[in-house]
Design a protein around this nucleic acid. Structure first.
Length: 259
DNA sequence: TGATATGTTTTACT
DNA sequence: CAGTAAAACATATC
């Protein structure tokens, strides 16, 4: 379920298990309709090593100081798996990086909405994509300006990757639930204190998910993520979880304590 | 069987 | 320009 925290957990798997190993080659899985680098671009990585990783919003980068970078976007259902030769090949494998010593890094993507591409310059890529500041890095003033300056629904603003990058549907709902703001509240009508509280909560929610390595079973039981069902009992008041559509996205909230 | 889905992009309209 | 809405992408799951 890839939003910023899930992307960061994936990035960490590369950082912890795949750096400083010479790339021997690539194995391409089912390629139809999957956006992968052309073979000649992949070939440029052969013989090099990944030495560092980076993440901006939901975009993962892996590369080296003087070599090419690859960027990975997990789309709706993508994930990264690290394994060793001799183990089971992950299902839905689209692209596997083969390192020396048998280490394998597989991009798997059941729904094929993700992509992997080679990028020359990370900062340039982020600029070209028009991404806003990373949601974990954005400061108080910038957050207040970008959210408070939006005339539309606050949730739509949170999800706008051009305003700030990394928040997706699940953690937008979670953050609004915990801050007590209705998803369809007009952002520019929110008092400054509430926007400040939302900023704190967004970073707290996603920081917690990262701390738990995006393992949802380790998240507190009173989080909305465990109760995203129409009609469920609210864990924060005596209200009832209700489903609505905001900005074309399914939104779960509690109308009793979110206003 | 049909509805729904965690993301992004494009197009069209207000 | 800011915002809304819908569709498309390809497939798995409930």
């Amino acid at each position: 379920m890839p939003e910023l925290p899930e992307a960061d957990a994936a990035r960490r798997r590369i950082a912890d298990h795949c750096l400083h190993r010479t790339i021997e080659g690539f194995t391409i899985g089912e390629v139809s309709h999957v956006d992968l680098p052309p073979t000649d671009q992949l070939d440029r990585f052969i013989g090099t090593q990944l030495t560092r990783t980076h993440r901006h919003g939901k975009y993962i980068f892996a590369g080296s100081v003087d070599g090419p970078w690859m960027h990975i976007h997990l789309g709706m259902a993508g994930s990264l798996r690290v394994w060793d030769d001799g183990g089971d090949v992950p299902d839905y494998a689209r692209l596997t990086v083969n390192f020396e010593g048998g280490r394998r890094l597989t991009f798997r993507d059941p729904r094929k909405f993700g992509h992997v591409q080679m990028v020359a310059d990370v900062d340039q890529f982020v600029a070209d994509k028009g991404l806003g500041p990373d949601a974990m890095q954005i400061g108080d003033n910038a957050f207040a300006n970008v959210i408070g300056g939006t005339r539309g629904a606050v949730k739509s603003a949170l999800l706008d990757q051009g305003k700030l990058a990394g928040i997706g549907n699940l953690w937008a709902d979670e953050s609004l639930y915990r801050t007590g703001i209705m998803p369809d509240a007009k952002a520019s009508d929110l008092p400054a204190e509430q926007i400040a509280a939302l900023h704190t909560t967004v970073q707290d929610v996603m920081g917690t998910v990262m701390d738990k390595n995006a393992d949802y079973s380790q998240l507190p039981r009173d989080w909305l993520i465990h109760n995203r069902t129409d009609g469920a009992d609210c864990t924060r008041c005596d209200g009832t979880i209700t489903k609505m559509t905001v900005g074309g996205r399914t939104s779960y909230h509690c109308p009793a304590h979110q206003t």
